[in-house]
């Protein structure tokens, strides 16, 4: 098993930082499409509703509503055809898989934006010397 882990981790380590998003984020996936001899990059934007962690086979599911129809695409994270994944909006979610969103419509299918309070810099923290 250790040899297999080593082989898989080699690829995972090479692509470190590719999995820099989490469930609930709205992302734009730049996916390379090969048409005969030409190559082009297609962007696919949507909500990440699941990440399936499995070493080199790790995939994530991106859901969007296209012309009123729900569309879900599964991307392998470590595939060389996934050019990059851009995080457009961070989401605040409380579960690891957002499958419930499939049954929701309109505003209920929305994920709140995650707003992290910026850490107060040390310069502001120190009280002004009163003398």
């Amino acid at each position: 098993m250790n040899i297999i882990n080593a082989i898989e981790q080699e690829v995972v380590a090479k692509n470190e930082g590719k999995l820099s998003f989490s469930v609930g984020d709205t992302v734009k996936v730049y996916f390379k499409i090969v048409e005969g001899t030409t190559e082009r990059i297609q962007a696919y934007e949507g909500l990440v509703i699941a990440i399936n962690n499995s070493g080199i086979r790790t995939t994530f599911v991106v859901r969007k509503i296209a012309y009123g129809v729900g569309v879900e695409r599964i991307f392998p994270v470590y595939s060389p055809r996934v050019e990059k994944v851009e995080v457009i909006r961070k989401g605040r979610v409380r579960r690891a898989k957002l499958y419930y969103i499939r049954k929701k419509l309109g505003k209920r299918a929305k994920v709140k934006e995650l707003i992290r309070k910026k850490e107060v810099s040390t310069a502001e923290k120190t009280p002004v010397a009163s003398n």
Partner: peptide, 21 residues
């Protein structure tokens, strides 16, 4: 025989492979 895993080839295709030590 060590076992099986998968590797991506240059075209991004996932290939099932057997590892032999």
């Amino acid at each position: 025989k060590v076992g099986m895993t998968q590797v991506f080839d240059a075209n991004g295709r996932l290939t099932p492979v057997t590892v032999i030590k």
